[in-house]
Design a protein around this nucleic acid. Structure first.
Lengths: 220, 220
DNA sequence: CCCGGACTGGCAGCTTGCTGCCACCGCGTT
DNA sequence: AACGCGGTGGCAGCAAGCTGCCAGTCCGGG
């Protein structure tokens, strides 16, 4: 048994001072799981760090960001995500809330931050213990595998799903026949089918089977 | 900044001696992510620990296990999983490999173990640092949310999917019409539809939409 | 008021999906 | 050979899904 190295720093400034070189020194991969992008309260610190990082599309270097749907709330965040994906970063959306932020650099350094609860400066926990990082990396992989890609999630069809679109989706998922579903929704058969057709167009699915597939992919 | 508490122990015996009370002291929840169940090389240590744990169905106590499909490889493991689910534990299957094992008890203690690489005794890393545990717990949640339930995964339909069942599934997913798909597979229309019907029965889906849904849930 | 647009419902007709029935084929058993 | 069995294909008929067309309704604007 032995004690090992875990340090905690308070506030962005101290993190940038103590761990900024870790960001700029990323060589192989950079993974990040967070609720949204408002993770650096001080934009200047964020810029200082980001400025020194390798480009996401550099050869042999991958950047992955796993975010919760909250990250898509405002247009600014969406634009930023489109920019980083254009630069080669991979962004996926997980349905889980992800209250804590996790960053792993080259599978050798891990930085964890609690959500912004409390008034004081945020606390960051930095560690290099391989066993910790390995375990967290495995969980990240598991969450990553099953998360949906940002572009699919966003450009796909998600945005334009109103309330009765979802109702139709539920009826379809319940396996009701069109006639039964139309009755349950108080619609005529004709209109219900119009809705279904619109839905399938939105999911650009050629068949109902495909529509079910896509719907499941995008989180029912 | 401050240094904090992370200790590593070697071998099951030392873990049981030093951390056994953590297992038996679990009061609120017990979560575990691992590749399979062969995680305790010494069955007696496992039994000693398990014997003292609270029953999974005790009020206010939840047990969750997240495993990779490898855990379903042999019949013994499947039987064991059926037993623990019957006792109230929740078991889900993630498509990710999960090379490392992670255990979190009451969101206060975390135990990480590397995969069984190397000849020596396994190393376990035990920590109580809240920030670390919070971050890992969030990732676990994310992976858990999107994993499929063990009973659905197993009792459902997964086992009985032969090669041409998958071929049919692919055709359906590609959105081809039955006629086109049958031609592509060199089958008659009648037989193709028989296959589809069998598939839908296996997925017990009443409609093709539902079948697509289930297929996506169970991993296309 | 009338007009245009968006949404809805009914009708009709077509395509597609689904299934029961029968016939055929290959195979191993009797 | 005869038989049963499982898988396959064709046919027919029904049910379900899909869409074009027209008519009615409900606005908001000219």
């Amino acid at each position: 048994m032995s004690a090992d190295q875990v340090i905690t720093v308070r506030g962005d400034a101290e993190l940038a001072a103590r761990a900024g070189h870790l960001f700029t020194g990323a060589r192989h991969d950079f993974v990040c799981a967070a609720r949204d992008l408002d993770t650096w309260s001080q934009p200047e610190a964020r810029l200082r760090i980001a400025g020194g990082m390798r480009a996401p599309d550099a050869p042999g270097f991958t950047v992955r960001k796993l975010l919760s749907p909250a990250a898509l709330a405002d247009e600014g965040a969406r634009r930023h995500l489109r920019e980083v994906t254009a630069k080669g970063a991979h962004v996926r959306i997980s349905s889980a809330p992800l209250p804590h932020e996790t960053i792993i650099i080259d599978r050798r350094v891990m930085i964890l931050a609690a959500g912004d609860d409390g008034p004081g400066p945020r606390e960051f926990t930095v560690t290099t213990v391989p066993a910790l990082i390995g375990g967290v990396y495995a969980l990240f992989q598991a969450a990553w595998e099953t998360a949906t890609d940002f572009t699919a999630y966003f450009d796909g069809a998600m945005p334009h799903l109103d309330a009765d679109g979802l109702a139709v989706l539920r009826e379809l998922g319940a396996g009701h026949t069109d006639e039964a579903a139309a009755r349950r929704l108080g619609l005529s058969l004709r209109t219900y089918r119009r809705r279904v057709a619109a839905l399938m167009a939105a999911l650009d699915a050629g068949s109902r089977f495909q529509a079910g597939l896509r719907a499941a992919e995008l989180g029912l």
